[in-house]
Design a protein around this nucleic acid. Sequence first.
DNA 1: TCTGGGGTCCTTAGTCCA
DNA 2: TCTGTGGACTAAGGACCC
Length: 424
Amino acid sequence: MTTELKGRPPDGSVGFLHVDMDAFYAAVEIRRRPELRGRPVVVGGTGSRGVVAAASYEARVFGIGSAMPSTRARRLCPHAVFLPGDHSHYSEVSERVMAILRDVTPLVEPLSLDEAFMDVRGASRLLGPAPELAAEIRARVLEQEQLTCSVGVASTKFMAKLATERAKPRVGPAGTVWGPGVHVVAAGTELDFLHRLPVTALFGVGPATSRRLLRLGVETVGDLASLPEAAAVNALGTAAGRQLHQLANGVDERPVVVNRAPRSISHEETFARDRHTAAELEAEAARLADAVARRLRTSGLQSRTITLKLRFADFRTITRSVTLADPTDGTRDLVAAARELLAQIDVSPGVRLLGVGASGLVEASARQLSFDDETPAYDAAEQVTDEIRNRFGPSAIGPAVAIRSDRGLRSPSDGDQRWGPAAD
DNA sequence: TCTGGGGTCCTTAGTCCA
DNA sequence: TCTGTGGACTAAGGACCC
């Protein structure tokens, strides 16, 4: 049976690519330090409370995977090399890889530093069929960056992403089996491919959703596809129910979006030891708010809604937010909002994580000045501090309230995790 | 076991207002 | 003037992704 799928290109060809770097952060570190080649390498999880950001295939053989607590990873493989992440370096490498993709088509949608969708329907008319372009991209990334990637090719974004899983190296007890590198789901075979997969293969089905679906007897994508849409909506809500039911039937009309505007900017940090006093947390909140404000200014954005996030020692997580009358990118405004929100919360049980976020973003030029606006003077001061930090590093200068009497500005040597704003 | 950081999107509930 | 309704907005939390 061949079912006509919506969202498939009119000529029935496979025009969407999903490119995914293999063990990206670990591979970049190994490239930098060739003596690590062949050894289990783990990026992240160097602090006492960290988790694994990426593991080389040699480390995965021991059962180490991303998002695993570092304590567990160390137990599984004590002789692995644990490295702190170097986000800015990965960003640079990612930018160069994305440039290789944009050489093929401008229709590239990065999903993260190591992953992107491409719409090659137009490009393949000039440059050749999509599977050949996929192989060409792999070869160029390997040649120019000495890094491997896997590419899925299909008639929709979602099918291409699933195809990538088939292209990837596979880890078993016997070691790593290298995948084909490119996997094509031919037009017309999508549902055969899709319906055998477990429902957790669908983008958006995590532990909570799969538990709910299991109650309906849904275990595979095929089970979900044969369910009436109303039943899925009933179990999962309108948006998720409808979306997942469509995906299960191979329907995915989402286009590749080239310039996705950010919806929020945030910084959060898990402390090496819990904080119990408002004074300590105020200093941390000011430092995080300052980092968020700096990123707003760098991005040319302003925010109306400021959110404070706390995770207590028992892992209970709360957020408190405030919406301002006017959008802002000023350190002074963000610090004030964060402190105000913090003042409403009892922190005595102990706080393990603090975060500051900005949402309701608008372009900076859209902001309206009022007659009594005193921000221009602060704008000038913040421009100067931004320049000082660009030149001498992020800890060269900061808001006075972020300075703790015992240590001055916080630095990564505190023993807290190192991926936060102080490390960039 | 003991659980990061930076995001996105959705749901629910309350309030305000036409 | 009172009541009902629905939309817009805000706040908080949850689920999910890499």
